[in-house]
Design a protein around this nucleic acid. Sequence first.
DNA 1: GCGTGATCATAA
DNA 2: TTATGATCACGC
Length: 224
Amino acid sequence: MNVSPPVNLQELVRRANALSGITLQQLANQVNITVPSSTHSAKGWAGNLLEIALGADAKNAPEPDFRKLGIELKTIPIDKNGKANESTYICIVQLDPGELKDWDTSLVKAKLNKVLWIPIEGDKDIPLSLRRIGTPVLWKPDVNEEKQLRQDWQELCDMIVMGEIDKISSSMGKYLQIRPKAANAKALTKNKNQYGETKATLPRGFYLRATFTQSIIGSLNDND
DNA sequence: GCGTGATCATAA
DNA sequence: TTATGATCACGC
């Protein structure tokens, strides 16, 4: 089955709302895909499934999933209280000072300009096939959120430009953090500093902290 | 190896 | 229990 990209925002939201409440098995049936027995060796499976079902067209390009609409799709695992289980990967950390100059042209801002969050039950005691898709949340950073994101981004990028990437810790940044993003800890990529010197380092990615994404999607149930 | 989709596993 | 650091799968 091949789902065409939604023609506009309304269409996308309508499609996403139509999935609210159904299980991953039901959605997989709709697009003729087999549900893996667990996420252990299929970590991005649910995210890919939603991309296919909603007609995302950016594939693995470093752009928002719905190119024409400028909207990024993110699934987010939540526990039984509606709380975010995990941090959220945003994009690769570029390691050339030329690409780290300006927040307004950054990959992070492009990806987070507008995000359609789709919560999915993520408790490990629920079989993958029975996990339900939640109510989508269309989000755009407000003035204060963007200010903090920009500040985190600037602080981290400044360090990279200064050639201090190896001093960056995941504990840095209020909303944004930088963590490894690679096949394994031995993977290497090139990092250029402000003087044009190049050295090999572990590839990393930008992530949103779970505490921040939690504030975006809100809590379905504060009891328990 | 790069960049997408993320979650796993264990130290603290 | 939680967050950091590590890892899995895929297309190209």
